[in-house]
Nucleic acid binder design. Sequence first.
RNA 1: GCCGGUGUGGCGAAACUGGUAGACGCAGCAGACUCAAAAUCUGCCAUGGGCGACCAUGUGUCGGUUCGAGUCCGACCACCGGCACCA
Length: 871
Amino acid sequence: MQERYDPAAIESAAQADWAAHRADVADENAAGEKFYCLSMFPYPSGRLHMGHVRNYTIGDVLSRFMRMQGRNVLQPMGWDAFGLPAENAAMANGVPPAKWTRDNIAYMKRQLKSLGLSIDWSREVATCDPDYYKWNQWLFLRMLEKGVAYKKTGVVNWDPIDQTVLANEQVIDGRGWRTGALVEKREIPMYYLRITGQADALRDALDGLEGWPERVRAMQANWIGRSHGVDVDFPYADDTTALLGNAGKLRVFTTRADTLMGATYVAVAAEHPVALAAAAGNAALAAFVEECRQGSTMEADLATQEKKGMPTGLHVLHPLSGERLPVFVANYVLMAYGEGAVMAVPAHDERDFEFAQKYGLPMRTVIASKTGAYSEVVAPWVDAYGEHGITVNSGAFDGLESSAAVDAIAAALAAKNLGQKRVQFRLRDWGISRQRYWGCPIPIIHCPSCGDVPVPDKDLPVRLPEDLLPDGSGNPLAKSAAFLHCKCPTCGGDARRETDTMDTFVDSSWYFIRYACRDNAEAMVDARVDYWLPVDHYIGGIEHAILHLLYARFWTRVMHDMGLVRVAEPFSNLLTQGMVLNHIFHRTPAAGRREYFNPADVDLAVDPATKQSRATLKSDGSEITYEGLGTMSKSRNNGVDPNSLTEKYGADTARLFMMFTAPPEQSLEWSDEGVLGANRFLRRVWKAVFDHVSGGSPVSLDAASLDAADKDLRRIAHQTLSKVKDDIGRRRIFNTAIAAVMELMNAIGRHAGEGPQARAVRQEALEIAVLCLSPIVPHITHALWQALGQAEPLYRVRWREADPSALTQDLVEVVVQVNGKLRGRISVSPDAANEVVEAAALADANVQRFLEGKPPRKVIVVRGKLVNIVA
RNA sequence: GCCGGUGUGGCGAAACUGGUAGACGCAGCAGACUCAAAAUCUGCCAUGGGCGACCAUGUGUCGGUUCGAGUCCGACCACCGGCACCA
């Protein structure tokens, strides 16, 4: 064994060893219960960033640990390879997106391999490969047949920078999720997937996803937005019937049917047909309707916008009382939600209240609080009473608790055929058409005589030409004659291909399914899928809490309903890893753009007097501004390149630092000193093994002939085994597991015995330390395991269970409290009777001092832990 | 406004089921080794008091339950994230 720890040599040797013995390949016929460990696959942007390193290290530690526990582990990797950056790079460099993407994949794959990840590369998937996206197209056609996919022309979110449509999920604060550009409204025909058809199932199943973080479940529930309510029809009054030419009804949706008897008017959205009809003969109203439609699309603005409205001059009839109620157009009613019309109950709804007060409309109290705190809305009006309570002023429905009133009123409406209970969702169908080149072609042919014709299965995949170069003006597919022109599969006449491609979130909605059967050229899935799914542990960033994780759940459900996969929910456990943060420094010159400095070039010190941080440039000592911590990003120049880290210290140091510095779900602050500390620990472990093996081969351990110091070390070693197993296996936290091994290493360092049994105990303790560290730092432990004289290579070694006899102690320390405060410590036999422990506690001098000679009122003994004496 | 999360030393954090608050590490200080520096090793390291054994205080704030509260309950404060004229 070499004295010096040389990570580069050790790591390449270990990686070569694993590759030669195919240690990472997953086999569905292998023994052991399966464990599918999945990390979110990367977009091949060019290079790995620290977020990737953290994500994949977590997955790898878990995979290696589970393999040691005897589980049959699958850890695959692939590439989310379609998307806009490739087109932008193509425009900048003149290289086709296909080549740019595949070059990036090759580079990043090398980077991943250098991290020592135990990935089964034989299952690698890139979504831009025709043998992958063929099945996007195939399933899309099945969805069309079942009505799960459909075409519709509607108002869509248009990103003017990326020149494409965005799904609702991809619009954040009125801006494109990628570009940050203000989203415009456009009317475009496109394909939708009926995710609303699964809304109930997706919402219900959330409650069963106990392995998911609460906040992700909450965010999805929020997004799906299920509300239980009642559709209420307000029959047209004579004036409305006259204008619209029929005796129809105005339908509204309400979650507060218990307040129906308090409705004093009805409000409709500006785009509502009744509003449009009324505006046709009313110039002032037409102007107002137009004003509403042109209003800001930014939702943040909408929330603070003043409530405005205008009477239509029309009326409807209250469905139960028959009262004539005016119909208003109001800017606070959204056409896109519910029926685009609401019944207004000013006494019990904040928005209606504000509107009614402004326009002098009547208010009628129909709910009183159960406690009597609120009984009636009276002048001067202050606020609406929006709580649930007991119905009043509601005729036959008086005296009911809100939920009972909803039931009674819904029943009364149903009897008159003027309403029924209904569930309303916030979730909208998923529009998947994108007017972009670098994506999966939608397999449709437009024929002048036959219309939209699906591409026959035998002609799949519709291949994306890989040699086109986007120029920034529209979709190059629409300008490629070879792609565009084709024959109609039905009539054989000249036809045109659909040039829209699929949203890239389609590609990532099922890649984890394809890993299980990626070499199957005949079918999308096979029996191996049912073996591996569901994913036992999924690891990725919180930023996908809604988008990707909701789409993947939907897609899996669709495949489940078609009988393609057995599971309905794809991910049993979800770990959302925290972000990697670093300091941000900048300087704003008098003229020109703000300049960001990489933390590696800056000295950061805290002034002890003022406690202010002071940042100076290493190059010239000039002072710059410290912004605090933020996510590593190119734009703020605070990234750390994983390559520089692995080249300087090795992959094991990088892995150890990431896993030790913070628990996986929390954000991780970058620290050069922390990296150094991780490296220092590995060097210490190396040296401890070197010093030990330099003393020659140990004798075999004889547990009966150990002295007290040997027993102590042996106990600590076996405690470490069970602690590390529990931390990684059950709690999924790695920092405390590493801390436990550090404690063991400290104990080994303190253990000074020179005899053969002392050496045997140290041998065992070092073996245990190496075993416990092996999932986290697989390379160095691979080498150390050999150095400790082990014939079986570490990647095949199973976990050791703690020896119960090693854990026993002759004496245990018990804490003595007086009135809950620590006053002393005693050593007693672990199976001493409570009376004996109590007597020893009372005999302690400091305890006696606090008792002041008085007899204790009560003594509580917690066996093996503490004694509390109540004075 | 609604939903979710987080508040612990100079810093990252630990304390899992109510039972020794601050494990482990970083930084710092002192010492050893060295011609010297780096590296390495040893010791100290919540705050205040005491030579010391120890004592008092201390987990965002206020109150409660308990023999005992960072942990449970109630009210609040701050920060982070998500959603939002959603009827």
